[in-house]
């Protein structure tokens, strides 16, 4: 359990009316992206100002995570005509993400490492810069969550502008950045002197205990590297369908492919990017057709080794935030928690 010192201590209490006011104030500066429930699913989408009452703070994980805001599943990067290139903008309006889960917040930080590091991605960086993040702490984890293993939830610790915890019919709001603090001041939401901080600490402890799925992360990269031939890999390769769904929904999977498309005049066209996945055959194919991951077992391993070993080598952190989406999604029932546990048996 984390020491209470890690959460911001100043707490504001917003009732239904002032929470609505907060959202409307945000919407004046930002386009609001938030989880909404529609057509029997929960998705993250951009809301118009009159839809703000649809923001769902206690929703299960959105089908696609926040990465879709910074990099849509398919995007046009530039247009060309006979050697002339027309670059497209980086996206217009600044965005606020409201109600994202703590694990998804952590995932954004991991994506930052990837996209704004040595090979900086201009569009991604631009979109991240004009960003306001309102995280919604989880009181009740969902069946597949294992965020506590990576300290990415169920309560957020840092790198948010605002954190909101819906507790006993009120919204407890904390600022985690100068921008967040300034925003609350302008809004005129007073700091509470009541017992709310203590309530938050208790709620956090309770939520953490409710996350019962765990990954033992002790020496995990080493364990993986010593078990490249463990029978569990063939067992899951036998079940895995190579559909790639698990990587599509993963908040930290960042792989994409780039493709040029010609228009009918054969002179002009556009360059598009689309998310792709190491689970699919063509992903690792190189010129002249060789494919180092031709065998399914190599593709299955790539995903889990990337999350729990390679990402660590490169960035000193695990590449999984324990959101459970891949488990929800996999029709074959492949579960990293279970696979990693088997390695220790």
């Amino acid at each position: 359990m984390s020491p209470p010192a890690q959460i911001a201590t100043a707490v504001r209490v917003a009732d239904e009316a002032s929470w609505g006011q907060l959202l409307r104030a945000l919407a004046q500066t930002y386009d609001i992206w938030a989880p909404v429930a529609e057509k029997n699913r929960v998705i993250l989408r951009c809301l118009s100002p009159d839809e703000l009452d649809q923001v769902k703070l206690d929703a299960p994980p959105t089908l696609l995570p926040a990465k879709k805001v910074y990099r849509a599943p398919e995007e046009t990067l530039l247009r060309f005509r006979k050697g002339e290139v027309e670059p497209l903008g980086n996206g217009q309006h600044p965005w606020a993400l409201v109600g994202i889960h703590p694990c998804d917040l952590r995932a954004i930080q991991l994506l930052d490492r990837v996209y704004t590091g040595f090979f900086a991605d201009e569009r991604y960086s631009h979109r991240r810069q004009q960003n306001f993040l309102v995280v919604a702490n989880c009181l009740q984890p969902f069946p597949h969550c294992f965020c506590t293993s990576f300290q990415s939830g169920p309560f957020a610790r840092k790198e948010y502008d605002l954190a909101v915890t819906p507790l006993f019919g009120r919204h407890l709001v904390q600022a985690g950045s100068a921008a967040g603090e300034a925003f609350l001041r302008v809004l005129g939401l007073p700091e509470t002197t009541g017992s709310e901080l203590a309530e938050l600490v208790a709620a956090q402890a309770q939520a953490e205990q409710a996350v019962t799925r765990k990954v033992n992360t002790d020496n995990l990269p080493r364990l993986l590297n010593m078990n490249v031939d463990h029978p569990v890999w063939d067992q899951i390769a036998d079940r895995c369908l190579s559909c790639g769904a698990c990587t599509a929904v993963c908040p930290t999977c960042y792989c994409f492919s780039v493709q040029d498309r010609l228009n009918l005049d054969l002179q002009s066209g556009e360059r598009r990017m689309a998310w792709t996945s190491c689970l699919i055959m063509e992903f690792s194919r190189v010129a002249l057709g060789h494919n180092p991951r031709h065998e399914r077992v190599a593709r299955v391993k790539q995903r889990l080794y990337h999350k729990f070993s390679y990402f660590n080598d490169q960035y000193g952190q695990f590449g999984c935030v324990g959101c459970g989406r891949c488990v929800d999604t996999c029709v074959a029932g492949i579960d990293p928690v279970e696979v990693l546990a088997q390695l220790r048996r």
Binding site: K39, N40, R41, I43, L63, L64, P73, E74, L241, S242, C243, G244, A245, A248, V249, A274, W275, T276, S277, I280, M281, E282, T329, V331, A332
Partner: peptide
């Protein structure tokens, strides 16, 4: 590649639990 990848990226509600979907 598999239809599931395309289907998930379009944020459709997955039908597999209820129906025999050949998407994978």
């Amino acid at each position: 590649y598999s239809l599931c990848l395309e289907c998930r990226l379009r944020e459709n509600a997955c039908l597999f639990a209820q129906e025999l979907c050949l998407g994978p």
